[in-house]
Each structure stands twice: as structure tokens, then as C-alpha cells.
């Protein structure tokens, strides 16, 4: 399972549309969640609409919160998205067998069995989350909170039984319009320390190009033969994953 978690505090203003970039992500089997962080005032109508649209295009969830709720929100979103992805795949299987897809329609016994499978897979399936952090000037006072929230998320992921990895990107990047990689795929919580300490903050917010950069990174890994996974486009991944469970 693949996710992108975008953390930003405003509108993009450079490069391709982030909504389109998110749509591309979804097409490649990557869900995009967005957290808007604001401590004072509001994020503005334009900003909040963009945040909602990116998540919608990316098949994910969006929330606007202050820094105190950041860690909890990131975990809630990650978990919810995992559950939804699995539920979707499981529902497809269930429909084949029972003719009924939605959990609400199932009689108690079947429902209990399906949820057991969903819970099992939620805990054991492999998971990769790319964190994409907006480090434009306005984000500066929030970055230490962001880092703590990332560490907290990593701690929760570490407790899962399935292999869980995170990577961290920030944007704008130094050279390109896209994003720079701060930490490559890891499951080591202790790696999440002083990620952004050497950053020089710039003003532009190229959210779209940054998402595309993360997609490239995901793709690059797949080409590299990362544990001979099937290509991301293979939508059957979910089904293959649960094939052994629902009989």
C-alpha cells in the first residue's frame, strides 16, 4: 500500500496543478492525504479549497488543524486510509462471493468475519508513506511541530506487524522546482531527527511539481526491482493480497 501525506499551510503558486498531480498519483495506486496546518487565522478560502481538491483527486482525506492536533491527525488519516484501501479490496472479493459488497448490508456473522479479515490486513500488510512537507517561509514556525508529528507517526508505524516505511521530502527544493529528499525509505524511528534544521526557506510553493517528484521516486523504486513487486499500475494488487483470506 502506498500513500503520500502532504503537509502545507497554503496555496500552491508555481508549476503544474497539484490537483492534477494527485490524480496521477491515484492512477498509479498511491493515495494522497493532505493536512493543512494553521495556528493563527485561517488558511483562506482558496487554500482550503485546494487542500480539499488535492485529497479528493488523490482518493484520500484532508483536514485543517493547528499544530497541537497535528500528530494525532496524521495518524488518524494514515490509519483510516489503510483501512479504506483494504476495505475496498475486501469488498470486491466479498461481492464476488456473496453478491453484497457493503459491510452495512451483511448479516452479523459474515460481517464479523469480514471485519476480522480487514483488521488482520490493516495490521499486517506492507505500507509505504511519503511525507511531503511544505517548507515555504510561512511554515517555518511550524516545522519543529511537524518533525515531532513525523517521529510520532513513525513510532506508531513501527508497532505494526507489516513492514512499514516512511520517506520524507520537502519543497521547494534547492535546485529544481520539485522537492528534495530528506530521508529515504526507512522503518527506523530514530532516523527522524533534525530533518529540516539546515533548510533555507524560500517563498514559492510548487506543490504540483513536488507531488510529481514523489511519484518519480516511487516509480524509480519499482523499476529498481524493489522486492520484485508488480508494477504500481496493476490494480489487482489488493485482490492478490487478500486472495488467501476470503474463501
Amino acid at each position: 500500500m502506498k500513500q503520500i501525506l502532504l503537509i502545507t499551510d497554503g496555496c500552491s503558486n508555481v508549476g503544474e496543478s497539484p490537483v492534477m498531480a494527485a490524480a496521477h498519483a491515484l492512477q498509479e495506486g498511491i493515495t494522497v492525504n493532505v493536512v493543512g496546518v494553521v495556528d493563527y487565522g485561517t488558511i483562506g478560502e482558496l487554500g482550503s479549497r485546494e487542500i480539499a481538491d488535492i485529497a479528493k483527486a488523490g482518493g484520500g482525506i484532508s483536514r485543517i488543524v493547528g499544530t497541537p492536533q497535528l500528530a494525532q491527525t496524521m495518524q488518524m488519516m494514515t490509519r483510516k486510509t489503510v483501512v479504506q484501501t483494504i476495505q475496498l479490496a475486501v469488498n470486491k472479493e466479498v461481492k464476488k462471493i456473496l453478491g453484497e459488497g457493503s459491510l452495512e448490508e451483511l448479516p452479523p456473522l459474515q460481517r464479523s468475519q469480514v471485519v476480522t479479515v480487514v483488521d488482520e490486513l490493516t495490521e499486517t500488510s506492507d505500507l509505504r508513506i511519503a511525507l511531503l512537507i511544505d517548507t515555504s517561509a510561512s511554515m517555518k514556525p511550524k516545522l519543529s511541530a511537524v518533525e515531532d508529528a513525523i517521529r510520532d507517526l513513525a513510532l506508531s508505524l513501527e508497532a505494526r506487524e507489516g513492514k512499514s516505511e516512511i520517506a520524507v521530502f520537502h519543497f521547494p527544493g534547492r535546485l529544481s522546482d520539485g522537492a528534495d529528499l530528506d530521508m529515504d525509505w526507512t522503518n527506523d524511528v530514530s532516523g527522524v531527527r533534525s530533518l529540516f534544521s539546515r533548510l533555507r526557506m524560500k517563498g514559492a510553493t510548487p506543490t504540483g511539481p513536488a507531488i510529481f517528484r514523489v511519484l518519480e521516486h516511487y516509480r524509480y523504486d519499482t523499476l529498481d526491482g524493489y522486492r520484485d513487486r508488480r508494477p504500481a499500475e496493476d490494480q489487482g494488487e489488493g485482490e492478490g493480497m487478500i486472495g488467501g483470506y476470503v474463501v
Binding site: E123, D152, L155, S156, E158, A159, E161
Partner: peptide, 24 residues
């Protein structure tokens, strides 16, 4: 037991205090 803890409350959580994992 052995699975990740599903729900917790900050103050009561071992991870919150940097005192250990969130494995149940």
C-alpha cells in the same frame, strides 16, 4: 497482544513519554 495499540490517549501512552514502543 503483539499487535499495534489501536487507540490511546497521549498522557497514558508509553510512546508519548519516549518510554517504549506502541506494540501492545
Amino acid at each position: 497482544i503483539g499487535r499495534s495499540v489501536k487507540q490511546f490517549t497521549e498522557w497514558h501512552d508509553r510512546g508519548f513519554w519516549n518510554a517504549g514502543s506502541r506494540t501492545g
